[in-house]
Design a protein around this nucleic acid. Structure first.
Lengths: 346, 346
DNA sequence: CTGAAAGCGCTTACAG
DNA sequence: CTGAAAGCGCTTACAG
């Protein structure tokens, strides 16, 4: 027995190709392509022969090959902090829906708030040649994406601006929303209001703090340093911070929570205390209305963030030579009870 | 000026290819490939020349082309009901993490509970030649996937079994979990217990109902027909059903809610009533412990469902010739107050 | 250590 | 109406 070349590993599980279909139907490759893609110019008779061969072989076009030739993958990449975080669910779904109307699929992944992982994931998606990329940034230096953007990857940042590059960003009016929430507490008679937020390197945290300060200032209210705290949103830290603000010589009568993780922890702290303290939180969350009292929040429209960002992405892909823009979406104050508690002992 | 052929549309935004790198570095294509893939057998000097060309041109390997040649896409598809539903968040993330350890990316999409959309999406993913597919089924006929599975797409169903084909499925012990929850109510003294669940064509709904009936029967308790209701989980229907069970000649003293949507609506109904009614819900949800009373639930481990399913998928891809299996994960009863309310007027 | 040729499964740009 | 040839950007299986 002569030594013969080993047959190559079965690829794609030995699926039939257009070549196989062509051979079986006794036609050329291009004719199969025409039938598969519904292009005109094939006699009904030929078409039937091809269709029969397709059915008999169980052929399904390999879009992976198609894409290579076409130059566009009809794929959008989405990088967020954590697929498990309910805040991103509606955003994720909104991105999917818009992509779907453009015939594109969604590849997504979590950065786990790790800038290195974000970078690794983003570049892997670029290597797969996603047509566009939507990024909720974890890092604050996105220069690594500059060559990709220049090479044509339509990129839109969401929730926080890109770091050190000029790129599209869609975000909520964090400053205005926080200012509204704090003004709501002030209108209710509060004068000593605490602010507990996320790490100061996070854009949304500092913007919301800025809104808090602006509202206090325009009401002519002083801000005692002990009333403001940025840092980890770990329950331990937030709970300790909240307790400290509620005791001591200048206890606050109301708390503004900088995001939903903070809000939930503050709710737990307040539930364990006798005295009524007012609370307004940034970000809405499920069942906020079922708690007693219901939790007053400044709500962002997460789905709209995703929708607007993806629309922008496809506008870019359509060839509009758009300059990078900052698109800000309004927030909405939702009074439910906790923010309407009057100051006690104030 | 002579008529020349129009240059082709810029593909992938005119990115440099290995060929460009080879030309610039003055080496062969294969040498570039070696450097890019870190293969041995390149002199440091040659390697540097190639690396310089890569950097100068901003080359990034086109994995889309690589994949075509290699035969595996290193991609897993995940189809669930709704990316926005918080129940699927942890599952989604768990699938991503396991895929990540195998170097695979995640394409996902929502079926929107529409069997046609599920099918369309699944076949689109197969056309992209995902290596494997994880499906939370919306439809109950999956014969359309049979050719794909035979062709080598590793497929695992989650949460509900596939319809009309024999395939791997990973699900929670719906029967046992519901039986535990109902037994817990019975142990607390309840004898008239209602069951409100999802549509009867949904596997989990009927399994949980079966668990309810089994628990009632083994306690020797009769089940009045008006105590059981399967159907839409729309708030209107669920609320009306709950109110009906709580009034009339044989009012229930406890309700077992068949899933988290039902539970939340029942909580709303009970909150508006003076009399205390016990409640146990299937599925845990965020903040269930913050409600007053805390909501007692039968918790599924959604992350474990995703993890086990994805592990199974990669076992298949590794070539283990596994027969289709049904893997059942245990549930856990979490008492928080609502399930420990004693029967009133019983 | 290095590279030319063939091929992955399609589409493109033709010509007949 | 139909199809052969070239090519998308890589990797494979060689040979030198």
């Amino acid at each position: 027995m002569p030594h013969t070349r080993r047959p190559p590993e079965p690829r794609y599980g030995n699926r039939p190709t257009m070549k196989d279909v062509a051979a079986r139907a006794g036609v050329g490759l291009k004719t199969v392509s025409r039938v598969v893609n519904g292009e005109p110019g094939v006699t009904p008779d030929t078409e039937k022969r091809v269709q029969d061969a397709i059915d008999a072989l169980g052929f399904r076009r390999n879009d992976s090959a198609r894409v290579l030739r076409k130059g566009r993958t009809a794929t959008v990449g989405l990088i967020l902090e954590d697929l498990a975080d309910p805040f991103y669910g509606p955003l994720n779904r909104a991105v999917e829906e818009v992509a779907r109307t453009h015939g594109a699929l969604l590849i997504n992944g979590s950065s786990a708030e790790d800038p290195d992982r974000e970078r690794e994931l983003a570049l892997a998606l670029c290597a797969r040649r996603v047509d566009g990329l939507i990024v909720i940034p974890a890092g604050d230096d996105h220069r690594y994406l500059e060559p990709e953007i220049r090479a044509g990857v339509a990129t839109v940042f969401v929730d926080r601006p890109a770091g050190r590059i000029d790129a599209d960003v869609v975000l909520s009016d964090n400053f205005g929303g926080a200012a509204d929430g704090v003004a709501h507490l002030i209108a209710g008679g509060h004068r000593r209001i605490g602010f507990i937020g996320d790490h100061p390197h996070i854009h949304t945290a500092t913007e919301r703090l800025r809104g808090y300060r602006a509202a206090m200032e325009s009401a002519g209210l002083p801000v005692h340093p002990s009333w403001v705290s940025l840092g980890s949103t770990a329950p331990d830290r937030v709970a300790a911070t909240a307790r400290a603000m509620l005791s001591g010589p200048e206890p606050v009568t109301a708390v503004f929570a900088g995001n939903n993780r903070v809000t939930v922890t503050v709710v737990r702290v307040l539930a364990a205390r006798p005295r009524s303290v007012a609370l307004v939180g940034f970000d809405d969350f499920e069942l906020a209305d079922l708690l007693r009292p219901g939790v007053t929040v400044v709500a962002q429209d997460a789905a709209a963030l995703g929708r607007v960002a993806t629309d922008r992405l496809f506008q870019r892909l359509a060839g509009a030579g758009l300059p990078p823009a900052r698109i800000e979406l309004p927030t909405r104050l939702v009074p439910r009870g906790s923010g309407e508690i009057p100051p006690v002992g104030g």
